[in-house]
Structure formats: C-alpha cells, structure tokens
Simulated assay, not measured.
Amino acid sequence: MNNTFSDNSQIGVVSTFSELIHTNFQGDMNALCWHRNLEGDFKEIVVKLELKENITEVSAEDLLALQLSEKGNIAREIILNDLQLLTDFGALPSLNLLKNYERDDELDFISTDVYSYHIDRSPIGTDTFLCTYYGAASDIIPNNQVEQKILIPEIREKLKALHDGPEAEFETFLKDYFFDLHYQPKPDAKPVNLGSGHLWRLAVDHPAQQVLPCVHRAPVENDGEYRLLLIC
C-alpha cells in the first residue's frame, strides 16, 4: 500500500469498485482511491491508437479494433471493464488520448485552465472519477494548503478592474467566468500525485455536498509522451 495515500487524511483507500462508489466522504476526506497495481501493457495501446486532435476520445470500438499482444490485451480488458463498471453505475466515462489541454494565457495574473489547481462544480449531486493508465498523472492538494485565487488581494484588485461594473455584480462575474474555482498553493503545500492505474473518486462542489470539494490539477505532460486517461 502506498503510504502517501493511506497516511493522508484527505484520501480514503479502498480495494473494490463497490467500496469506491459506496464510501461516504467525511471530515477532511474528499478523495477516494481504489488502489490497484495493474498488469498489462498500456503503452502498447497508446502507441497503436491514432491521435486525431490534442484530445482524442477513444471508444470501446476503437480499443477492440486494435491488434494487441497478450499484455496489450490484458490492458485493454482492464480499460473496458472500468468503462463498463462506471457506465453500469450511471456515470458517463470518457477515455481520452491526450497530447495536451488548451492553455488559458489570456490574463497574465490568473489562469483558469485545468493545469491550474481547481475544483469541479455541478448543480446536481455527482463526483469526478479519473484513472491515468499511461503518462503523467494528476495532482490533488489538501484544502488547507491552498488559497482561493479570488481572495488574494492583488489578484482580486485586477479582477475588479477587469470587471469594471457594479460592485453588486462582482461575485456573479467571478462565478460566470469560473475565476472562483481556482486556487493557489501555499508556500509549504504538499501536493499528492495520483499515480498510474488507480481509479479515483473526487468530491465535487454541489448543493448537497457534505465536505469541501477536492482541489486538483492536470499535470504538465512528459515530453513526447501522450496520456491515456479515463475521466467522468
């Protein structure tokens, strides 16, 4: 068992998919990890898939069409099983072959892309599920080790200048443009890398949520390496 996960109060570690979906978030715990050491050659799948855009969604049919070695086939069966488990649960999983996400560099003082630490928000009760099968993996960070970017004075002043409207509408402006979802790590912050092969469930900000939403970010990709990511 990875001590980084099991010794961290933010993370609950489980050993089955059933536990992953039925364990309640509570206290500081807003991330659940189905801890797995996967067999199979996921790199072979990545090499044989065709990247059509920077983010290419891969269907079950695309996977089944690949001619794979025995180890590649083991990896494919794992992915197909994960997709089926999440679909049966009622989620809408997407398997993505990733070169990179779009960068948000429009403003030099605040970023709102997925490489910035952020939370997910939904109007209905839901969770974020993700698993990195190959390539760089995402990070999460404890809520007490980050500061909401819109509360940092110099950023807030620049956002007010950008808004250039009535004070009463400023908070709505921050939400409309998703500025309020993004966080800055404190100097002593200790992010946790989610690693490869583990299926994660992260708490989302929604009206019935009992815990703080999980702050996370996409990784900077390794040079010349695609990522294979399941997410929903």
Rank of each mutant, 00 (worst) to 15 (best):
1 M>S: 14
1 M>F: 13
1 M>L: 13
2 N>F: 05
2 N>K: 09
3 N>P: 13
3 N>W: 12
5 F>L: 12
7 D>T: 12
8 N>S: 06
8 N>G: 02
10 Q>S: 15
10 Q>V: 15
11 I>M: 01
11 I>N: 01
16 T>M: 03
18 S>P: 10
22 H>C: 13
23 T>Q: 11
26 Q>A: 13
31 A>V: 11
33 C>E: 00
33 C>R: 02
33 C>N: 02
35 H>R: 11
38 L>V: 06
39 E>S: 12
42 F>E: 00
43 K>C: 07
44 E>G: 04
44 E>H: 03
47 V>I: 11
48 K>M: 03
51 L>R: 05
51 L>I: 10
51 L>Q: 05
52 K>C: 06
53 E>G: 10
54 N>G: 11
54 N>T: 14
57 E>K: 15
58 V>E: 00
59 S>E: 06
59 S>M: 09
59 S>V: 12
59 S>R: 09
59 S>G: 08
60 A>D: 13
64 L>P: 07
69 S>V: 05
73 N>T: 15
77 E>A: 09
80 L>D: 01
81 N>R: 13
82 D>S: 14
82 D>A: 13
84 Q>I: 09
86 L>F: 08
87 T>N: 11
88 D>W: 11
88 D>A: 13
89 F>T: 10
90 G>S: 04
91 A>E: 14
98 L>D: 01
99 K>Q: 12
99 K>V: 09
100 N>T: 14
101 Y>F: 14
101 Y>G: 04
104 D>F: 06
110 I>F: 06
111 S>G: 12
112 T>W: 02
113 D>F: 02
113 D>N: 03
114 V>R: 09
116 S>D: 02
116 S>H: 04
117 Y>V: 06
118 H>F: 05
118 H>T: 06
119 I>G: 03
120 D>E: 08
121 R>Q: 07
121 R>G: 03
123 P>S: 07
124 I>A: 10
125 G>E: 09
127 D>E: 12
127 D>A: 15
135 G>C: 03
136 A>S: 05
137 A>Q: 01
138 S>N: 10
142 P>L: 05
146 V>R: 00
147 E>L: 07
148 Q>T: 09
152 I>N: 07
156 R>Q: 07
158 K>D: 00
159 L>D: 02
159 L>R: 02
163 H>S: 00
163 H>E: 00
169 E>M: 10
170 F>N: 00
171 E>H: 12
171 E>T: 14
172 T>F: 15
173 F>D: 00
177 Y>Q: 07
177 Y>W: 11
182 H>A: 03
182 H>E: 01
183 Y>M: 02
184 Q>R: 12
184 Q>M: 10
184 Q>P: 06
185 P>I: 03
185 P>Y: 01
186 K>G: 02
186 K>L: 13
190 K>E: 04
192 V>T: 07
192 V>G: 01
197 G>M: 05
202 L>D: 01
206 H>C: 11
207 P>L: 08
207 P>K: 08
209 Q>W: 08
210 Q>A: 15
212 L>Q: 14
216 H>V: 09
220 V>Y: 10
220 V>I: 15
229 L>I: 11
231 I>W: 13
